[in-house]
Design a protein around this nucleic acid. Sequence first.
DNA 1: TTAGAATCTAGAGTGTGATCTAGGTCAAGC
DNA 2: GCTTGACCTAGATCACACTCTAGATTCTAA
Lengths: 139, 139
Amino acid sequence: MGRGADGLSIGDVAKATGLGVHALRFFEREELFLREIPRTAGGRRVYGPADVEWLLLCNRLRESGMPIATLKRFARLVRSGPGNEAERLALLEEHERTVRDRIAELTASLEIIHGKVVTYRKHVEEGTAAGLWSPAPTA
Amino acid sequence: MGRGADGLSIGDVAKATGLGVHALRFFEREELFLREIPRTAGGRRVYGPADVEWLLLCNRLRESGMPIATLKRFARLVRSGPGNEAERLALLEEHERTVRDRIAELTASLEIIHGKVVTYRKHVEEGTAAGLWSPAPTA
DNA sequence: TTAGAATCTAGAGTGTGATCTAGGTCAAGC
DNA sequence: GCTTGACCTAGATCACACTCTAGATTCTAA
C-alpha cells in the first residue's frame, strides 16, 4: 500500500502471513475475520495490524489441524464480543486436547516407522537385504 | 469367509484393518497391494494374513501423513522384489524426517495454543475476561 | 430352494480447502 | 495521458482420498 497510517493491502497481508490473496478473500467470504475489513473508495481491502495478528493465530490453529468450521466458530465467538470467554476457552481446550492426541498418534507411528528404518538400514549395510519383504512380510 | 485355510473375504479384511470395503477396492485399483489379490471361482477377493499385515503398516504410514502417491511408490518397490532396498530405505527415512518435522510443528503450535488456554482460563476464573480480544488483540 | 447378505464392476459424487479464470477496475509512476 | 501491476467479483476448477450408487452376481443358511 504505502501512504500514511498503517493500512495494509491484500498483497501486503499475503506477504505478512504467507496466505495467498485468494485465500484471504476466501477467509473473508467464510467470515473468519474478527470484523468487516474496510475498503478504500475504490473498493480495495484495507487491513490493520490486528488483522494480521489474528491471521497469524489462525495459521497456528489451522496448521495444528483445526478445521475451517471450528475456526469460524471461534471467530464468531470473538466477534460477538465479551461475555462468552468460557465458550472460547472450551473450544481452545478441546483443540489443545486434539493436538496432544495427534502428537501422541504421530509419535506412535514414528516409532514403528523408525523400527522399519533401523531394520532396513542394518540389512542394506550388511548387504543382506534380500527377502526383507516379499510374499511373507519379514520386516 | 469361513471355510478352510485362512482366506479372508473383503469384509473380514475391512473388519481387521478398519478400512472400508470401498477403500480396499480403491487400494487395489491404485496398486497399493504387494501382489495381485487372488479371486474365488466366483470372482471374489481372497486375502491372506500378509495382506492384512501390509494394510496395517499402510494405515500407520497413511495416518502419519504419507500420501497415497508415496505409498504407491513404496508398494511398487516392494513388489518389484529384492535389489532396491536402498531406495525403500531412503523413502522411509524421508518419511521419518517428515513425521519428526510435523511433530515439531505441532509441538510449537501446541505451546502457543496452550498459552492462550492458560490466559483465557485465568481471566475466566477471575471474571476479568473482558477485552481479551476484540478490536485490538490483547491476548 | 430360496431369501437375504455379501460381493462384484464401473463410474459418479462428496468434503475440505484452497486456487484459478474471466472479465473487468483502480492507482502509481513515467 | 498511459502503461503496468495490483486489485475486484463470481464462479469454476483442482487435489486428495475416499465413499457411494446402480445393477448384477454369488454365496450361505434356513
